[in-house]
Design a protein around this nucleic acid. Structure first.
Length: 475
DNA sequence: ATGTCC
């Protein structure tokens, strides 16, 4: 516990300014002055901010003082201009997409690094790049083009268990779902319950002090699901015909579907590197959140490694969940499919290597499998990409909202929600009105709008859904 | 999306 720990706001209050120096100063404080007297350290830092030259011979602050003098005398960053005209981009299901998302996409298409873009049929407004936005950039990566929940993904396990086994043992499956999943912002596992995974031994955790500090939280949250629209659910997957590639015969099977990301680790990394990008890459105000890092720069390479670490961590979380559940039910696995939808990839597009950002978009290269969920009461789909160039080999990552969280909480009643769950024979554990099926677009309409992007392989119908408890019900 | 720490 560091109740009196000096934070960024404290330093801003005594004369530090937003930027790289602030981060360095916080690192020095953490490393050398954690247990020192707060007032003493604050007055020393204040003096340093006013006259860094007095600290050039200081045992600990020498390096920081040097950098502050360099920074102060360096020429000021110039704003990078956007192109006057936006490059054209494909939009799928435009009639169901809000204007804000299209406006944001138009700004993204004016970045000097932009090669191509596309908007998926579940698109809506986000920070910087819209959710459901795909952007191919030349040798640059945009932290907010990936999103806050780095590596957020879907994972599906199909078991060799016929659907009637589920219907006959509903309570057992419900019990195991509750026993082996954990939800809620900030929630993780106590030391004795913690899972192990090779991702925790990854070298990238030692890359910087900032990442090192996130290791313990990452460990405690390994195998947890978080909040918002994240879920773990049992459902029935239906193959209307044999799938030779998966080697699955036509029929209905029990399946486990999960949706979650990189938890606190990814969120903290996303925030850190977005700040860094905004500090380095000054864009006009309406494009500020699209700040990018050069892939050849130290910051760009550091973000790339951190992003990949967060992605692999998110994958590990799903692996832990699916392993626990498979073990609990003792089922034989027929197939496992996984895809991330908040990430950046190096891909070849139109003959050149580009960085493809998918922020809430499913990779849909030719033959690439993905999962597009509907809602807790609507089916989701196992799909195969068609490799559509205009969509930059992408598809939607879900149905998309038709009501904001606030709107949904206001306009939907608990009775209405109960009725639609009953009608679809869905058992719900947790979740608030903001995740009600009516808050989402009709998944069939969305799938229709992306017929050129994916083929449907199988249909997944949710049966027992677990989400985070409704925030309003918590104390 | 995230224990609301730039």
């Amino acid at each position: 516990m560091h109740m009196n720990r000096i934070n960024g706001n404290d330093l801003l209050a005594i004369g530090f300014t937003q930027g790289k120096i602030l981060g360095l100063a916080l690192e020095v404080l953490e490393k050398h002055y954690q247990d020192a007297d707060r007032d003493m350290v604050l007055s020393m830092m204040k003096a340093l901010a006013e006259k860094p030259e007095l600290y050039l011979d200081h045992e600990i602050l020498e390096d920081l003082a040097t950098k502050m003098i360099e920074e102060a005398s360096a020429p000021k960053d110039e704003t990078i201009d956007l192109n006057v005209t936006a490059k054209e981009f494909a939009v799928y299901g435009q009639e169901h997409i809000d204007e804000g998302a299209v406006r944001q996409m138009n700004i993204a298409m004016r970045l000097p690094v932009t090669v191509a873009g596309a908007l998926m049929p579940d698109a809506h407004q986000g920070y910087g790049l819209p959710i459901g936005g795909v952007l191919a950039a030349k040798n640059a990566v945009i932290p907010y083009g990936v999103g806050v929940d780095i590596g957020c993904r879907m994972a599906l396990s199909i078991f060799d268990i016929p659907e009637n086994h589920y219907f006959e043992n509903h309570d057992f499956y419900k019990k195991e779902l509750i026993a082996h999943t954990r939800f809620g912002a900030g929630h993780g596992f106590m030391r004795k319950e913690r899972a192990e995974h090779a991702v925790l031994d990854r070298n990238e955790f030692n890359m910087t002090q900032f990442i090192k500090n996130l290791h313990d939280k990452a460990w405690s949250q390994l195998g947890s699901s978080g909040g918002g629209n994240h879920f773990v659910e049992w459902g029935i997957i239906e193959f209307s015909e044999e799938d030779k590639l998966l080697n699955i015969a036509a029929g209905r099977y029990l399946a486990l579907l999960s949706h979650s990301g990189s938890r606190g680790l990814g969120a903290t990394l996303a925030g850190h590197y977005t700040r860094l990008a905004k500090d380095i890459c000054k864009l006009p105000k309406d494009a500020a959140n699209l700040a990018y890092l050069d892939m050849n720069s130290e910051a760009g390479q550091e973000y790339w490694l951190a992003m990949n670490l967060a992605g692999d961590y998110a994958s590990a979380c799903h692996e832990v969940i699916h392993d626990k559940m498979a073990k609990a039910i003792g089922g034989q696995l027929l197939a496992k499919v996984e895809n991330h939808h908040n990430f950046a990839w190096k891909e070849i597009w139109n003959g050149e290597e580009v960085i493809v950002h998918r922020k809430g978009a499913t990779p849909a290269g030719k033959g690439v499998m993905g999962i597009i969920p509907g809602s807790m009461a609507a089916p989701g789909f196992l799909v195969r990409g068609k490799g559509e160039d205009l969509a930059i080999n992408s598809a939607s990552h879900g149905a998309g909202r038709q009501m904001s969280r606030t709107q949904a909480t206001k306009n939907i009643s608990h009775q209405e929600m109960k009725a639609i769950l009953q009608e679809n024979k869905v058992t719900l554990i947790g979740a608030g009105l903001d995740e009600a099926p009516m808050a989402y677009k009709d998944i069939n309409v969305v799938m229709n709008a992306q017929k050129d992007l994916v083929d449907v392989v199988a249909k997944f119908t949710p049966k027992i859904v677990r989400m985070a408890d409704d925030g309003s019900k918590e104390d």
